[in-house]
Write a protein that binds this DNA or RNA. Structure first.
Lengths: 344, 344
DNA sequence: CGAAGTTTTGCAAGCGTTTGCAGGCTGAGG
DNA sequence: CCTCAGCCTGCAAACGCTTGCAAAACTTCG
């Protein structure tokens, strides 16, 4: 029966506040429920009592009745690429702005996705964002069954039925190609990531499309084993092993491009952009640093994030609607790894 | 098969499973509660029924009874420094390993901490990790009042009563100094972060201590406005404005050190380590890349994280114990920004 | 001043679990 | 065959909140 007495050991409940304020429990509840009706007199009494007792509604109990937890799940896997820190920043911020909370799941350490799915579902979250390579059909099936809106972020899986928010990677690939063509480069290479990943495929696809439209040969192609700096070195080694060196390299993302640039400069003694051009993707903060000055294709992260949250929060009304796909345009960020003049 | 009539619209509850299996609700509950007693026959029936119905206990309802949410809150602010991506990786992984979940709060966008605190407390989390500069006494007070174990991570605030897990920053600063002294450097500078931050203070303190012990003058000192690459440039400008150039610069962290290195090389045309030495702190992944090859002091992130979670999960038993402080040792990671031989 | 209309308020029935308690069942010992 | 432990199991009371419903309180107006 510890209401206000002693040191405040046990939690203060609505009941305590009600007693303290001389009103009913429902009254307390209504004061803390945005839409509910309550006279200003009562509101004042309850608020004062809550203040005195340092009361705070229990989110668990509330969600039991309302069926809403205000929790948004975020599944992430790639904790090596700094761009994901920006993404996380953007997501958590957007989520908090709307009075929601972020439940973060890490599926990178070989923690099997399937197992995690169970753990996630126990919390009956209000929405789920998947920003990880592995998008199992199981997951989308579970979400559908439980009516949990799902957004796949920055990936475009073919086999699952889910909302998708992504950059227009194909168009982004084309931008890279057109920029290089315009500047007089002809023999191109594309260094992608694992072939299974849609972003890697799409960027390469767009790149080749634009090359073909310009009557050029398709890009020489190497797939890095993973998105990372070190993989960039290894990819260049393989690319150059063929003997036929390209004039320009388009990389599936910035962190890889940085590894590529350093391999070109330090291992092969090439000058960028004089000897060879490099274009990246993402526009991470480090791409703008002095040693790199990387020309790159920027994804509109913030806009993509906003779009994702919008879809999640709008969904409840619609229920069985067909999943939507939003592709947001990329932009070219020109720095110093592609020469300016279009010489031949 | 989709069990529930109509297509599985509403959640499957223990009640449904009980009916399906021909047992009581309590039986279902006990099967899903690790310690509880249940005959293997009943267990089998319940498990089979749950499988058929795709049942999953509701974490909210459970925590209402048990008073445990299995939720660990993480408060973070610095989403620009890549080291925090590793930290987050490590934390989420460790948390999930123990069957807990991570609730992530971003307090970087000027979202006031005070307001966030309320939002956090509503979820009656089982533990809280604060890895942000701003550690208000209010927060620790609230945690104490609600009996929520609290760990301040990688910060060492003086004014709050809370558990603290941090690297031994003073010793780390000394390591940097001793390395530089041993290699024959004499006139040192320290580029710190905002003076209010304990890590910045402590690293500088240790650095100066070791200088004094060696009979050297204290380090010239500049404080960057924030931890970031760009701030490194600006700090060097201010440092060199005095006219008296140091032979070596110790930076409060790697990302700042990278900015410093590039300012030295590109703006002042200095060679590292021939003209000037640089030492960083953290050992982020990018510190090892070709253009930087930064010699740095590494914090044992994984160990610190494990220690933090241990404290959080042990705490419930102890309750009112005095807060503990754990300082873990750093190590020197030598690369190429300090010359090898100790010439004079 | 009283009737009709409009809030405001309290009651009580949930929400999906866990858990103390007591009755039921099982099997061993007499 | 009966008794007495021991385990299982179901009942029902929480946990802290929301919300439909109807009574109470206040307004407005004839």
């Amino acid at each position: 029966m510890a209401s206000g007495k002693g040191g405040g050991r046990s939690r203060v409940t609505a009941d305590d506040v009600a007693r303290e304020a001389g009103v009913s429990i429902s009254a307390v509840s209504r004061v803390f429920t945005p839409g509910a009706s309550a006279s200003s007199k009562m509101r004042a009494k309850v608020l004062a009592a809550s203040e005195r007792l340092d009361y705070m509604p229990n989110a668990m109990a509330r969600s039991l009745m309302t069926n809403r937890t205000n929790l948004i799940g975020i599944i992430m896997a790639n904790f090596k690429n700094p761009v994901y820190l920006s993404i996380l920043d953007s997501f958590t911020h957007a989520i908090q702005q709307r009075g929601l909370r972020s439940l973060l799941f890490n599926v990178s350490h070989g923690d099997d996705l399937e197992g995690s799915v169970r753990q996630i579902m126990e919390y009956s979250i209000d929405g789920l964002i998947v920003s990880a390579a592995s998008m199992s059909p199981l997951l989308s099936e579970q979400c559908r069954r439980r009516d949990i809106p799902l957004v796949v972020f920055a990936r475009h899986p073919r086999n699952v039925k889910a909302n998708v928010v992504t950059a227009d990677n194909i168009a982004g690939g084309r931008m890279a190609a057109r920029l290089l063509i315009e500047r007089g480069y002809r023999r191109m290479a594309y260094i992608g990531g694992p072939e299974t990943i849609s972003t890697s495929r799409d960027r390469g696809l767009g790149f080749d499309q634009a090359l073909e439209e310009a009557g050029l040969a398709p890009a020489m192609r190497v797939n890095a084993a993973d998105y990372g700096y070190d993989e960039g070195h290894e990819a260049v080694d393989r690319l150059f092993a063929g003997g036929d060196r390209p004039e320009a390299i388009f990389c599936v993302n910035d962190i890889l491009a940085m590894g590529v640039m350093d391999a070109l400069r330090y291992d092969f003694g090439l000058k960028i952009p004089d000897d060879i051009a490099v274009v990246g993707f993402d526009d991470i903060h480090l791409a703008g640093t002095k040693p790199y000055q990387l020309t790159t294709i920027r994804q509109p992260i913030d806009a993509m994030v906003r779009e994702s949250i919008d879809i999640l929060t709008d969904q409840p009304g619609k229920g069985d609607e067909a999943p939507v796909t939003r592709m947001l345009p990329c932009t070219v960020v020109e720095r110093g790894t592609v020469r300016k003049s279009g010489t031949t």
